[in-house]
Design a protein around this nucleic acid. Structure first.
Lengths: 198, 198
DNA sequence: CAGCATACCAAACAACTGTTTGTTTTGGGA
DNA sequence: TCCCAAAACAAACAGTTGTTTGGTATGCTG
């Protein structure tokens, strides 16, 4: 079953295919206006085509969202992967993972921002797919927390939720230029790592 | 200047006024469908009146949002105030403030949820007002962090952003019944307070 | 009880929404 | 070069959106 619902091609796709343009345009709008506030005409216009033409590539607006969302998850995972792979101090590793995560959803590309910004419920028909995609990434993130040498009885689930929440919510207040994702990640991890009560 | 734009009343409002009904209905929809996904017809229907009638009380949908949002901030502040007022261990105080904050935006009322859920940009004309309201509350929250006995050089701003982010993001994954706001607040504050590296 | 502003109804408006349908262009394999 | 599917156009559809306008009922004040 193809990810994109279209008349299954008997031959190869053509070279002048504008599908990537559509995805980029959609990601751009979804990222900074939100899903519901973006019209198919917005997207078509930015991609240099007519609204109806989008339906050759996607069966519906929601299916288009799924495609963008999936690409977003793919990119965030790819951004985090190198940091996750390296060994050494687990706290250092966590910090790098957070930095990569932040960079992906604050600066790098529109696709990453979509994953954090768009609520699955906004697209009821495909909501379950979106949640599954998000969960898929969160399992990745969990590995960074799992590697930490923590005192016994420490609530690792709460730690993960807290950290991920702080990172994702930063999209609300973060303004590019003032502080890098790198240093922000450092600050957050330090607050957890270093004892605040002496 | 009245908060609500309407023909400034020469006499007192009438007793059968359905304005509170409108606000409640709007808060309900804004809280669980979002601002953009709620129509004036949704609200009017739930309040038992016709769409056009809403415009007697509010000049526009955005003004209606401002009213709901302001009430939301008022309620959160009111919920947090008692915890903030008590003296004793500052960490204990912070935990109670967080618990009250969480309760307000996860369970207590729709108004509180609106403040966290609705993005100011969704209502461009009044976005500045919404941001001002949100900032107003965050200053309140800051006091709980300011009272903490922390090691010198501790980044209190980052601490505030991290904690508030974690709390607000919980709206994304929290499911009522499984865990109380109280215990969740305890977990979060503990992670900050207790040293994680031995 | 008279008068009047309050509070709402009733009906429409233009603009915009996602989507469909039939038709046309065009690139690439035979 | 022929041909067919890929990819897009052109134009419309029905439904929904926020909002406006003019009329009407009704609670409160004097």
């Amino acid at each position: 079953m193809p990810a994109v619902a279209r008349p299954s091609p008997a031959t190869a796709p053509r070279a002048d295919n504008r599908l990537p343009l559509i995805l980029d345009a959609a990601a751009g709008f979804f990222a900074d206006k939100g899903y519901g506030y973006t019209s198919m005409r917005d997207i078509a216009g930015a991609a240099g085509m007519l609204p109806g033409s989008l339906y050759y590539h996607f069966a519906s607006k929601e299916e288009l969202l799924v495609a963008v969302y999936a690409e977003g998850v793919r990119r965030i995972k790819a951004a985090v992967a190198p940091a996750l792979a390296r060994d050494g101090d687990p706290w250092e590793r966590l910090e790098q993972v957070c930095a990569a995560h932040l960079a992906a959803l604050l600066e790098d590309s529109d696709y990453g921002q979509v994953v954090v910004r768009v609520r699955p419920d906004d697209a009821p028909v495909v909501a379950a797919q979106l949640v599954a995609l998000r969960d898929e990434y969160e399992r990745t993130f969990s590995q960074a927390v799992a590697g930490l040498p923590l005192p016994p009885r420490t609530d690792r689930r709460a730690l993960r939720l807290m950290l991920l929440g702080a990172l994702n919510w930063s999209q609300t207040w973060y303004r590019t230029g003032k502080e890098s994702p790198q240093s922000l990640a450092r600050r957050f991890v330090r607050l957890l790592r270093d004892p605040l009560e002496s």
